[in-house]
Design a protein around this nucleic acid. Structure first.
Lengths: 192, 192, 192, 192
DNA sequence: CATGAATGAGATTTCATTCAT
DNA sequence: CATGAATGAAATCTCATTCAT
């Protein structure tokens, strides 16, 4: 009983995510956003009260997807679980980059944004605990090197996920390569 | 009675580099820049004609330092050379992050900026050729795995350099760890 | 199945009056107005074509009430009439404040508004004539001081009506006090 | 050693005061302000960080002038002091109207504005104490009526100050009339 | 040279009003 | 009728850049 919607909330967040990935937080303008959507700039304010809320909502959505994808991961055998984690984060490849913008958001601008950021923090903490436990378990099972501190091994793992796939290798295969390199290294086993 | 020199070009570029690293290209403002220096905002225009020129000059300087540091690397034995490269880029840790800003610079704003960006491109190409040759030589010497495409091994190597050093391990030691993980992987050799 | 009536014209004007008194003309927004009513903002346009018309209609209503209340006042004995006028304006306490908004209304926006404003002007003029005549009669009857120009005495009288009743004295009593002070002054009669 | 100033801070506050008096807080726009000054709208931000700061500073200035004018008033004989107060507030006729805007200012917008508003509150409290004491002393000296509560007498006095001077009577004479009416009332003494 | 001051272009946000169901 | 949704105009504010001393 009103005009047809110019765009849905979900389309708005999709466009937001694309812009945040392409231009970063400071390069994210509502002008660009509205140009990616079929509507006027002011229409965006029918959905969110300000810029901060939009970005926070976008990040929250990604966090929710990530948490959901990691559901039940601890039931798997440690090394398989780690490989699964790699695949999850590869598919949600925006996760790390998006989360970088979190500290730039002005929390005082909006209560809704503040609550979303809180959710993000809790989600982050939960994920960290869960994944740390996973790597711990893997090491206790003797699957990981003991001569290098576990946090370093973990940090390298999570950072490796974001390696740019210049050759556009298909995701599955790319995951295999990354895991293979992280697990066995790039050196020739015959010469080691 | 002449006014005292406000700040040197070099101080200006140092501050620029710090700001670019801390806030990214879009968060880089001349206002913030002048606040980090001992002079007025308008004085900046005595050195550079616009924002773009400053960023381009800053990136050019880093590129020059990098090229110089890599001078003669090809004389070393391949694996030692690769380890040296790791250390060089670790010390010039800003390199990758800084270069990310390059495509954001509006080349139409300034000829000088355009020339600097061209220099950057050439430098990038030269470096790439040189380092690709290095890894090629290493593989031909049988030092690298053959079952994973060389560009992937290289990409993972260069991306691993930027792994955040959360534990603040001293650089030398950190370099050893990163190289060790890249070379041998994180899996326990006993279980492989 | 007809939608239920959202709100009446009268409710709309009541809310308008409240908002005008609380926030003044420039602080009067249709958004706030619709929030005070049980309907959508766009429904307001079923009753009035624009903001100006609403305010003008609201002011006209108050003017009509005031004129009606003053009906027949000239039949009373002058001083009693003046006291009655005081009570009338105290009860229609919004009158003066509301009328202040009149010059702010953009007459070009609406014909209906323009006509209401004309009515206001005429009403104002009529009231003024009537009340001036009243004070004139009182002075001719020797009831008012002759050493101060009548318009000044009148102005002070009408302005005194709006004295804020901080102590929340009941209206009747408050009217007595105001009239007493206006009539006899605040000085101690024994020392005069 | 720079361009000539487009306008001084004092001119800015003068224009602000005029606009606030003519249009009220909600009708106070920076566009109108800049049009009254010989400069661009953005230049205003070289003086004050936001709208709130401007209004707060303007009100603070008026409060300072008022406090200064009331300096030493308590040394006078009570009735003479009250008459002096009338003259002071008549000359600073904007005082009451300006202060009405205070509660509309958003204190969270600026620290500077918040501090100015605090100053205003303190000033208000001080003035109130001082003037209340004055009227108290006058009543104790038997100069004021005892049959009407003192706060009412005071309220009527301070409200009467703002009586619009439609006839444009010169200030001194106007003060005499207002005081005369407040003190002796408008009724004819012969008939009382 | 160095800089205080001025400013236009562009970003965010609000709100009266129109549109379409 | 009633209204949810859309939107342009206008307001606030920021910042790169120019000007004039």
């Amino acid at each position: 009983m009103a005009r047809q919607r110019a765009f849905t909330k979900s389309e708005l967040l999709d466009a937001t995510e694309r812009l945040l990935m392409e231009r970063g937080y400071d390069g994210f303008h509502l002008k660009a956003l509205s140009e990616m959507l079929s509507g006027a700039r002011s229409t965006i304010y029918e959905y969110y009260a300000n810029k901060e809320e939009i970005v926070a909502a976008c990040m929250r959505r990604t966090m929710e997807q990530t948490i959901e994808a990691c559901e039940g991961i601890e039931q798997l055998e440690p090394v398989a679980a780690i490989k699964k984690v790699l695949l999850i984060f590869l598919e949600l490849s925006n996760f790390h980059t998006l989360m970088l913008a979190a500290p730039k958001i002005d929390e005082t601008a909006s209560d809704k944004a503040r609550r979303d950021l809180e959710f993000l923090n809790e989600g982050h903490a939960d994920l960290k605990k869960k994944l740390t436990a996973l790597f711990q378990k893997a090491q206790e099972a003797g699957a990981l090197r003991a001569d290098i501190p576990l946090p370093v091994i973990t940090a390298v793992f999570f950072h490796a996920i974001d390696t740019p796939n210049w050759l556009n290798v298909p995701t599955e295969e790319w995951a295999d390569m990354l895991f293979g390199l992280w697990w066995n290294g790039g050196g020739n086993p015959l010469t080691k």
